[in-house]
């Protein structure tokens, strides 16, 4: 048996439905998980669960709020005071409000933009600097199919994710030479608390399947992946409609 090195993996937004599923896939004796998010008490429970299921080291819990960008400079040093290195960072946090509500009340739009784009960029810039310097690491950012094309029914959320997608693209380009890999994940509809008030049709996927797809994409060093894969084709069609036609559609 070859001695396997312990991997340290940070999950930002670890209380998300998708993140919980991913953490369960990851939990094992060779993985030290660090769970970061707003609800520390929830994360402590998840940590216990992951320790029992994965037979690995107890995951560490750190408080993290995407909106408190003023705290982000201290965040990584705090994490690195508890683990020696960071090998992989998954970014899951995100905020979704109804388009109609956000059009009426800009504070809702603001929260989406600040969380999904500004908050994400703020923390990933720090992570990127750390990994670039170290010359290794993987960053996995969860964006969305909603960021592929603006539609009247969700462009406020969609544009925040579009920003994240382009940011991750640029980051990948910047870090390619230093040996740091960046993966953009674009899930379709996933059955998590975020979609609790939506009717679950055939297009919905369970978070476990998304988590497994993510791990496969990480192993294959994919740059960008739609999950499940069929969204690639749906989005191909949606992107290919000429704008002069698209703007008249009710989507």
């Amino acid at each position: 048996m070859t001695e396997q090195k312990m991997k340290n993996i940070l999950i930002l937004g670890a209380n998300s439905g998708m993140a919980r599923a991913l953490a369960r896939e990851l939990a094992s004796p060779q993985v030290q998980l660090i769970l970061a998010g707003r609800k520390v008490a929830e994360l402590e429970k998840s940590a216990k669960d992951l320790e029992i299921r994965g037979h690995g080291p107890a995951p560490k819990v750190v408080s993290f709020n995407a909106l408190e960008t003023g705290q982000h400079e201290q965040f990584l040093p705090e994490v690195l005071s508890r683990v020696e290195t960071l090998d992989e960072v998954y970014l899951f946090f995100g905020q979704l409000h109804g388009q109609a509500e956000a059009q009426k009340d800009f504070s809702l739009a603001w929260e989406m933009l600040m969380t999904n784009y500004v908050g994400a960029v703020s923390i990933l810039e720090r992570v990127a600097a750390y990994m670039e310097k170290r010359g290794q690491g993987i960053i996995i950012g969860v964006s969305s199919v909603a960021g592929d094309r603006g539609r009247q029914s969700n462009y406020l959320y969609g544009s925040s994710k579009a920003g994240l997608t382009v940011y991750l693209q640029g980051l990948r380009n910047r870090l390619a030479r230093s040996g740091v890999h960046v993966l953009t994940v674009k899930p379709g509809f996933v059955d998590t608390p975020m979609t609790r008030n939506k009717k679950k049709g055939l297009l919905f996927t369970q978070p476990k399947a998304i988590a497994q797809g993510m791990l496969k994409a990480v192993r294959a060093r994919k740059n960008s992946v739609y999950l499940p894969g069929f969204w690639k084709y749906i989005m191909l069609i949606i992107r290919s409609v000429p704008e002069s036609v698209f703007k008249k559609l009710k989507m």
């Binding site: 409000h97 509500e101 009340d105 504070s107 809702l108 929260e111 609790r196 008030n197 939506k198 009717k199 679950k200």
Partner: peptide
């Protein structure tokens, strides 16, 4: 309840 709007967010009625 939505923590920002305070509006109840109801899941759809399903069979």
């Amino acid at each position: 309840t939505d923590n920002i709007t305070g509006q109840p967010v109801l899941p759809p009625e399903i069979e």
